[in-house]
Amino acid sequence: MTEVRVTHVGGPTTLIEAAGWRLLTDPTFDPPGRRYAFGWGTSSRKTAGPALGSDQLGPVDAVLLTHDHHADNLDTAGRALLPSAGIVLTTVSGAGRLGGNARGLAPWATWRLESPGRPAIEVTATPARHGPPLSKPLVGDVTGFALRWAGQRHGVLWISGDTVLYAGVREVARRLAVGTALLHLGGVGFPITGPVRYTLTASRAVELCRILRPHTVLPVHYEGWSHFREGRRTVEARLAKAPDGLRDRFRWPAPGTATEVTV
């Protein structure tokens, strides 16, 4: 049985301590208050700061960056941290923009993290779509990540990335046994695009989890920005109506505090 420590820093940013490795997802460390443009008339204001500063993290072996072009997933302070990480795994287009220690993974490509004295971790890029069909020119490329290492009991640790529920995400359920799901929620929306949502809503998250059947679900990236349309209360209300004890699989990490998860 393997224990993993997941510390929710804020937004999509988590520190995953697994198998002797320290992995950081989507670094965001800017203070609150600033409004960031996302392109095509969309923008969002950061309303909450990180629970930990980047100077409190300690060494980072790898950054798992779902996408580099939205500030709620990589902000100014987070970008400054990237050169100090051992490697940055992200989308192919993102690696081209970032250069340096960034490496791009196409969907279902795998990168193997290896180091003497530690078990290897296989990082597999998984499909993600940050909005409705035909939205890619607006939202750009996004990826999720599946982490696999020796000793996992329940299945891979999967990071959804900013995505809606679509065929590519359903493929994750068909191809992988997911033990722990780090889900980006929030039902992102913008005034200019009306009812269109760009990340998982509560109802879609429940539908996805009924397909995945993960042992543990860790929700992240559902608050702290003005573009979120659904917070924790909405998700919990939907879970209260879900069958099969799904609600009991959800654990809400307290920002800044490590959550122990059996994988």
Rank of each mutant, 00 (worst) to 15 (best):
H154L: 13
A102I: 00
W252Y: 15
R249G: 02
L23E: 02
V142P: 01
P50K: 12
A205E: 01
G256M: 11
S84C: 11
T90L: 00
T28K: 09
N73A: 08
F145M: 00
H227L: 08
L82W: 07
G99Q: 10
A48K: 14
V196K: 11
G94P: 09
L183W: 09
R170G: 06
W111Y: 14
R174W: 03
V92P: 04
L134H: 13
W158L: 06
T66I: 04
A71I: 03
G144K: 00
T143W: 00
S93N: 07
L208V: 06
T143V: 04
R5N: 12
T124W: 01
L176C: 03
E230M: 08
R175V: 07
G189S: 10
V123I: 07
R175D: 04
S160H: 01
D30A: 02
V60P: 10
F250N: 02
L64W: 03
P50L: 11
V142Y: 03
A167N: 12
G245P: 15
L147G: 01
T163K: 00
P59L: 12
R238A: 14
A167K: 13
Y166S: 14
V172G: 00
P31A: 13
G41S: 05
A167Q: 15
E260K: 12
A240F: 11
L105S: 00
S54E: 11
D162W: 06
T163N: 00
L176R: 09
T163E: 01
Y36R: 07
P219W: 03
T199R: 07
